[in-house]
Measured scan of single mutants.
Amino acid sequence: MALNTPQITPTKKITVRAIGEELPRGDYQRCPQCDMLFSLPEINSHQSAYCPRCQAKIRDGRDWSLTRLAAMAFTMLLLMPFAWGEPLLHIWLLGIRIDANVMQGIWQMTKQGDAITGSMVFFCVIGAPLILVTSIAYLWFGNRLGMNLRPVLLMLERLKEWVMLDIYLVGIGVASIKVQDYAHIQAGVGLFSFVALVILTTVTLSHLNVEELWERFYPQRPATRRDEKLRVCLGCHFTGYPDQRGRCPRCHIPLRLRRRHSLQKCWAALLASIVLLLPANLLPISIIYLNGGRQEDTILSGIMSLASSNIAVAGIVFIASILVPFTKVIVMFTLLLSIHFKCQQGLRTRILLLRMVTWIGRWSMLDLFVISLTMSLINRDQILAFTMGPAAFYFGAAVILTILAVEWLDSRLLWDAHESGNARFDD
């Protein structure tokens, strides 16, 4: 018995066209964080690309023209004298008006014999932002004059995390709450300039795509075929072959399989920071003279006294001054041990922890910024005066060393310790 099946006739004509040209192939790229070699397709503007294995951002879609970056830099340069030299806060102490600005706080630190601690604050609040705007201006002028731009481009990517104007702005709020127990506070004209400078700096850093600047100024022929001998440069993120001198053909720094002496430098910085954190938390970090009496505060006791007036601000200072430094030390110690013992479990967790400490590390400088600003506000000789204690130097040095330890660690070593050939990683 035959089955009668109805015929289905399409209502619209289906047209099949042959592909007349070869589909576009992607360029081969190595991930600078996990060293995976993959094919990167062509990316349009405002599109980002991520590593298929570790999800690290390979290409950032946010990109401004150099002219727009230069305009932002010149605007920031105009704001800087007002943000640093004009009063941020006014207080009335014992019937006398006192003005506080950024430069005055750094000068008070240096004047009291601790120039190293003052230079830490100076670099993060004044030096690094000033280098940022002058570097962008150098790129703008240098591109037109045919100057060598490689050193500036190499420095810009590392400079971003040292620009800490946003953290200093939080420190202004913390210092205001600490001082309000002794005097009446009012915002100064410099505060508005400083807030504007923070906003412009944040926007500029978020749109400063150094890798795209490398592509514009020093374009290189990408690798179009897969080759395990391809290496990625950690300076400019170019994937290719080393030249005859073993250097990256684009930025001219040595092109090595792994960062040289990464573990040794990381261990040295980490152990030194552990040693410095002990006096930083045991010795007094601030000293207040009130009517001839002397009151010393460690980091913890200062947080407890701050909690009596504002528990939320005390929580912020606790996280930045105690929780973050010790968390960074514990995480980095764990990561280094996992590399030495070739741990194969929990790779995803370790990668996330490394990215976390990379982002939060700079916030530990908050305590030094609060001390710097408070020193310029309260300084009335023996009637009422505020000065920093010996722990300030140890704390600042420990924070900087932990930042350097994270920067010096080559994250690809975590993958080397893991089993080879993993296309995915999980716990």
Rank of each mutant, 00 (worst) to 15 (best):
T5D: 14
P6R: 11
T9E: 13
P10T: 11
I14L: 12
G20R: 13
P24C: 14
C34P: 00
F38G: 06
S45D: 10
H46L: 13
A49V: 09
R53Q: 14
I58H: 11
R59P: 11
G61C: 15
R62L: 13
T67G: 12
L69M: 07
A73W: 15
T75V: 15
T75A: 10
M76L: 15
L78P: 08
L93N: 01
G95F: 10
R97T: 14
G105K: 01
Q108G: 14
T110P: 09
Q112F: 03
Q112M: 07
A115F: 02
I116G: 07
T117I: 01
G118T: 03
S119I: 02
M120Y: 13
V125C: 11
V125K: 03
G127E: 05
A128M: 03
P129V: 08
I131G: 02
L132E: 02
V133Y: 03
S135F: 02
I136Y: 10
A137W: 14
Y138S: 05
L139N: 02
F141K: 01
F141L: 13
G142D: 01
N143C: 14
L145P: 01
L149K: 05
R150S: 04
R150T: 03
P151G: 02
L154V: 05
E157I: 14
W162G: 01
I167E: 06
V170H: 08
G171Y: 00
G173K: 03
I177M: 14
K178V: 00
V179I: 03
Q180D: 11
Y182A: 08
A183W: 10
H184Y: 15
V189T: 12
G190C: 02
V203D: 03
L205G: 15
S206K: 15
P222R: 09
L234M: 07
P242S: 08
Q244K: 08
P249T: 07
I253K: 01
S262E: 04
L263I: 06
L270R: 02
L271T: 06
I274T: 08
L277A: 08
P279Y: 02
Y289N: 02
R294C: 03
Q295P: 02
S301W: 15
I303E: 03
M304Y: 08
S321V: 02
P325N: 05
V329W: 12
T334V: 09
I339T: 11
H340N: 07
F341Q: 13
F341P: 09
C343F: 14
L352I: 15
L352Y: 12
L352Q: 09
M356G: 12
G361T: 11
F369D: 06
V370D: 00
L373K: 15
L373A: 03
M375R: 11
D381R: 02
L384S: 02
M388H: 11
G389L: 01
Y394L: 02
L401R: 00
T402R: 00
T402E: 03
E407S: 08
R412D: 00
G421Q: 08
N422K: 15
A423C: 15
